[in-house]
Amino acid sequence: MSANRPAPGLTGDVPTGGRAAPAAADAADPRGGGAEGRAPGYAPGRTLPLRVEFVRQLRRRRTMAMFGVLLALPWVLVVAFQFGPAGRGQSSLRLSDLATAGGLNFAAFALSVSANFLLVVAVALFCGDTVASEANWSSLRYLLAAPVPRDRLLRQKLVVALAYSTAAVTVVPLMALLAGTLVFGWNDITVPGTGEVIPAADVLPKFLIVIGYALVSQLVVAAVAFLLSVGTDSPLGAVGGAVGLVIVSSILQAVEALGSLREFLPTFWNTAWLDALAPEPDYSGMVKGVVVSVTYSVILIALAFRRFRRRDVVS
């Protein structure tokens, strides 16, 4: 680095004042007069690389614990089915009764039981915690003064939080598929409700659609949590707020008097992915679900960016 530094007139011997003094301290760098006065090597587009943010979040206990729970859940379910009363077999065509029919059935069941709450909490955690916890630790102001431009900080954090959320949503059905296949075998899927059997090979692409839909339907949770995260110093507040909103929405959608208004509730279409597993898949519900979810998410995330740009960071 010394090669490209012109000899500064201010260079002087470093008065090494004991152990604390920089051993090879440098003089003030006059290159600072460059474009926009940036320090050498600084470029806004290189700040807070995704890899760094991944590492920062990965070693957190809550990240580890959440993934531990998500990975363990299918096995807990497997054990529960093993110990359950012997009322198994083809007694009915409900999803829960068909769970032991094979790995694919089990994965669909695991997704259906976790999508309503567990995955909501996981997604809310990853997206609601990300900015609020930095504010809580006071590390946010040092990142901003580094400086990481605000939009970029938010973008990188959103990408990483969504990546963790994606991993959380994906890991449950995949682990369930693994556990179910090992324990119940690789069988064709039995469709809940009608009892038809679809070959496993045909249903695998549909399974990808199901996982993709589950991801998109959680997007609105992610966006709410992210917006709250940007506005508060309390990570729990952001996570709890997002989960609370999902609960309120679930309660409202039970009010039938609201009629078709309920179709615009963010949680209304959360179970529409079941339609994709029908022998004649009907994607209209899923399309509506995607539309509602994307609509809310886009607006909420835009609000988050707007809010963060204008905000005075005092935490």
């Binding site: 600072g32 940036r38 040092y142 003064a145 400086p147 605000r150 970029r152 740009r309």
Partner: peptide, 23 residues
Amino acid sequence: RPGAPVLSRLGSFVEGPGFLPHL
């Protein structure tokens, strides 16, 4: 201004430390 590149020539310590406690 927020995120101005010149801030890269500024080192700061204001109102207490801010670290990731788990690292």
